Amino acid sequence: MANVDVLELAQKIIDGHRIQRGDDLSFFLTCDLEKLETGAGWIQKHFCKNHIDLCTIINGRSGRCPENCKYCAQSVHNKTGCEEYPFLPKERIIAEAKQNAAAGVNRFAIVTAGRALTGEEFDKAIEAYEEMHKTLKLGLCASMGFLSKEQLHRLHEAGVTSYHHNIETSKRNFPNICTTHTYEDKIREIKMAQAEGLCVCSGGIIGMGETWEDRLDMAISLAELNIHSIPINALMPIPGSPLAHLKQIPAEDLMRTIAFFRYINPEANIRLAAGRKIMKDFGEKALVSGASATITGDMLTTSGTTIRGDFEILNRLGLNNAAGENCGSCGNC
């Protein structure tokens, strides 16, 4: 497949062809980037129309995480000096959700550090979700680690429609990034959330020392899991973390990754996440070259653009985040 015409392949994907594990995908790594971006844009336009999904997050509990993920500012194993605090008051969370809803975003997520949110803190989260579900027109998402089936059910009953749980990297590379939980643990959590009827948001981070083949494998694995929302993060090396020494990846590598993720996951929302600022246009070109969604506003330990700034980008590109035009077959991501 070394001489694959990526524009012809894009049209085949639009017509129903799907890339499978075992296919020779090496051409994605050497083909002309501009042509690859054009083809990814065709696929995006077909499946996602002019819709860009905008989501915001709040760091509901920060720091003191017992897991040893090498990229993370909030792990107790990494001396990053990150802010630490318990689960935020419900009033603080709801106030921020209201501001984001008024600004026009599509969905809002509470993200918490730690292996899992449990006990009284989880009960507080449920209370916050129940009130937001009753009073706000926002899609509600959660990212709270390794929850039980019962917890996932409680979230669903409280109005949460999407659960976020990144696979982070390829199965092969995962032990190089984290050893306190396994890749298989993550797959099990994703399948539990799907069995509950939640849309799953799952992606990963590039630039952690993995190979291009690891990135392709991650894209295929997410397709096999039928993931409808795929955040792509570029590592922002954090002082005090084990990956602090790594060089930031070039913007071109991020663009190539976004483009071939669109080819491999044509109907999903490919979501810009951490690392937008390494692109000189903050991802504006990416939003017509494969990325149909983005995290906006404040982003945990990494910065992105403002909500207002993203709406200005959408207006320039003739895109919108109007309800009812979502891509992704579950309709919630």
Rank of each mutant, 00 (worst) to 15 (best):
H164E: 05
K149I: 14
E84G: 11
V288W: 08
S202H: 06
S62D: 05
N326Q: 13
A273R: 06
A291D: 10
N320R: 13
S62A: 13
T30Y: 03
L216D: 01
N173I: 02
R92M: 14
L314Y: 03
T112R: 04
R154A: 12
Y263T: 01
K45E: 10
I249M: 14
P237E: 02
Y71T: 01
F174E: 00
T56A: 15
P237K: 03
E168C: 05
D214T: 08
E252D: 11
E213S: 10
I14F: 00
N3R: 02
I57K: 03
F28G: 02
N226T: 10
L140G: 00
E37I: 12
K124P: 09
P239N: 07
L136R: 01
I57L: 11
I19R: 00
E224K: 04
S221K: 07
I93M: 14
T56S: 15
T118V: 15
G39M: 10
R308Y: 09
I238K: 08
S202C: 11
N78E: 11
N100D: 13
N173H: 08
E84P: 13
L300I: 12
V4I: 06
I230T: 07
N265M: 01
K137Y: 03
P66V: 12
K124T: 08
A125H: 06
N326V: 11
N265Y: 00
A322D: 13
K49P: 07
L254R: 10
K90Q: 14
N166W: 08
T305H: 14
S229D: 09
K98S: 07
I307T: 13
F28M: 04
N50D: 14
I94P: 10
R308W: 04
Y163L: 00
S329Y: 13
A116M: 07
F122N: 08
I14R: 00
Y129Q: 02
G41P: 05
L138Q: 05
N233H: 02
I177Q: 04
N315E: 15
T38C: 04
E83C: 11
S148G: 08
E96N: 12
Y183E: 02
R172G: 05
M236Y: 02
T118H: 14
Y263L: 02
M279H: 11
N106L: 04
F261M: 08
N59V: 12
D24S: 03
R92E: 13
L225T: 02
S62N: 10
E325K: 15
L155G: 01
H164M: 08
T38A: 07
N265H: 01
Y163M: 00
C65F: 07
T135E: 06
M144Q: 09
Q194T: 03
A251D: 14
